[in-house]
């Protein structure tokens, strides 16, 4: 009888250990950078489509995710220190530093020009229309050939806040247009600037936007996340998820 009791106890113990192993989730800290409309710090972050997509992807893969809203510079610092495991969304190079990223991009960003609405040019492949325009551009953003080969006068803006200053100068008609590396960030209906500015795009010059990964992240965790991400993309790409949401 005592043998049977012992066996039952061992069996129960085994079940307990196995169930705790199955239920065990891995904590993951993710830094988020403001990137409207995908991650919009002005709105409830949990309603941001990129937040939801990433959360839906990682939870079934066994991760308990903590999201942190961070300013860009601080986010990069925390990623370098290993205090956050992932950072999104980012380009593969930030401030001339190559980032470690998941190989598949999240989405693509297309550069463009932002105009005061009365000066709007909708089709930027009509480069002859850029002739003699004064166009501001942030000094750290690579310009597309369609712009550099045009006869526009390009004024480079230096400094940390170059994009905001460039947009302001366009609003004040100091520039005819402003070159934005990612106009979607400003030209959306939730932005107050939408009332004054309109942006068009240099289609065909897309830059991939990725999920950056901390160098401190164990390779096994990297592989788990990467597999979950590729599976999610195959099921429904983030771009399609974003475009087809109600």
């Amino acid at each position: 009888m005592s043998v049977i009791n012992t066996m039952i106890k061992i069996f129960c113990l085994l079940i307990l250990v196995l169930s705790s192993l199955v239920a065990k989730t891995q904590p993951l800290n993710i830094g988020l950078i403001d990137y409207p409309p995908h991650i919009d710090f002005d709105d409830d972050i949990e309603q941001s489509p990129l937040y939801q997509y990433i959360n839906n992807m990682l939870a079934p893969a066994g991760f308990t995710v903590t999201f942190m809203k961070l300013p860009r510079e601080r986010a990069l610092l925390e990623l370098t220190k290993g205090n956050i495991d992932l950072l999104l969304p980012t380009t593969t190079t930030i401030d001339n530093k190559t980032m470690k990223v998941l190989p598949s991009p999240l989405f693509h960003s297309v550069p463009g020009l932002c105009f005061k609405k009365e000066n709007f040019i909708p089709i930027l492949s009509a480069t002859h229309r850029l002739a003699n325009l004064t166009i501001g551009a942030p000094v750290n953003s690579p310009l597309v050939p369609a712009l550099t080969d045009s006869s526009a006068k390009i004024v480079l803006i230096k400094g940390r806040n170059a994009i905001n200053r460039g947009l302001e100068m366009t609003q004040r008609a100091r520039f005819d247009a402003f070159y934005h590396p990612s106009p979607h960030k400003v030209y959306h209906r939730n932005n107050p600037l939408y009332k004054e500015l309109a942006c068009s795009y240099f289609h065909g010059y897309a830059t991939p936007i990725h999920i950056a990964v901390s160098n401190a992240l164990p390779i096994s965790t990297f592989n788990l996340i990467n597999t979950a991400f590729d599976k999610a993309l195959l099921d429904k790409s983030y771009e399609y998820y974003f475009a087809s949401r109600e």
Binding site: Y187, E239, F242
Partner: peptide
Amino acid sequence: EVMEDNKAL
């Protein structure tokens, strides 16, 4: 996706 890219416009 393309139409969504153009939604604001």
